[in-house]
Nucleic acid binder design. Sequence first.
DNA 1: GTAAAACGAGACAAAATTGTATCGTTTTAG
DNA 2: CTAAAACGATACAATTTTGTCTCGTTTTAC
Lengths: 209, 209
Amino acid sequence: MTATSLVSLSAPSPQSEKAPRRNARHRNNRVAIMEAAISALNANAGATMSEIAARAGVGRATLHRHFRTRNDLVLAIGAQCVEEMKAAVLAVDAVNVPPAERLRAMFEAVIPLGDRYNFLGFESADDEVTRSGYQAQLRWAAALVEDLKAAGDIAPDVPSRWVVGQIDQLVWSAWNAVADGYLDVPEASDLALRTLMDGLQRPTAGRSK
Amino acid sequence: MTATSLVSLSAPSPQSEKAPRRNARHRNNRVAIMEAAISALNANAGATMSEIAARAGVGRATLHRHFRTRNDLVLAIGAQCVEEMKAAVLAVDAVNVPPAERLRAMFEAVIPLGDRYNFLGFESADDEVTRSGYQAQLRWAAALVEDLKAAGDIAPDVPSRWVVGQIDQLVWSAWNAVADGYLDVPEASDLALRTLMDGLQRPTAGRSK
DNA sequence: GTAAAACGAGACAAAATTGTATCGTTTTAG
DNA sequence: CTAAAACGATACAATTTTGTCTCGTTTTAC
């Protein structure tokens, strides 16, 4: 469970005014810390700063140099995750294809971000900005579900909330399958799609269209 | 989310030697505390003793009278949940029917215990006894999956870990649907079964046998 | 090579949380 | 109605976690 991440964190967003010109080591540590924190907090929402620092392979003092308070850290991660999710979903929306293919593309794009997505799920409650970003993701998924229903890809009698919940969960299940090493991302996407649309009873056949 | 529980906690197990003959209020409070704790810890694994006491509607001192330490509380809940799960699953095994019907019976029996099940999922790491009880549940589910595969109810090419994970998650999803009030237990069981076996594409038809 | 940047280790103070104890009041059982 | 049981409130000590700071060492950039 030492979570080698499936994606890489982008460099420190160069938005800050008067950015104090950071070291390479500094940038690497920042990424390592955020990665370690996502992993640690996914495993245990109450993970302590010491645990996070240890997992990131830095001293606790360094952790506090990068993120003054625990809350700063959680907020930074939340913002980062929202950004990454937004980008992934935007790429899916770019191409104008039938909803079923958008669903497939979504799985491919979002499953590698499963840990981010999960983080947002239980850590977005505190901060307003992060939460609204997360809510936007859920609304996007809900809209996709409506499109799927309209196209006849999802049975209309199934509550949309249920479908959204299933998609949500499939992303996390698939991420774990990939992290555990028993599936790769395309396989996991296929299996997630198949599970959602056709269930696990049929031999393999491929989805009926 | 004020979680009116779907099941009721049994009276204080009368196993303890020299049981000091408790009050009715005492027994009620014990149940209320455990119920509140399950709910609070499901929402936030790091919930504080004060939060739990407040949610249970008792003072913090009373909480500590019932469970001297936080760990005592978690352990007691864990043991209780394992017992309840064991009983539910035992009832399913009692009747000798095809695996597909056992799956249906399992959903009916376990969905009302969804919050217990979820609790065990992330709080069983600390205590050995609780964890082994939880593991037993997972092994039971794995055995059921093998039976389903053997009976042709689950496609053999799907990794069993994946199937077990889906069942696990469906229980929690279904419990939430019931708690949110948009499904009742039989409906949720049907939907969980349908989702797992046939997916959500088919109109409603009923599962192909 | 050298100076600035970043770090680790450790010492501390400041919360926050837990656990204990006391005391007056309410509830229960009979 | 009464005594025992249980409770709430509150105060307090112990522990854990957080956040700050300093100092000597390592790494980086040039």
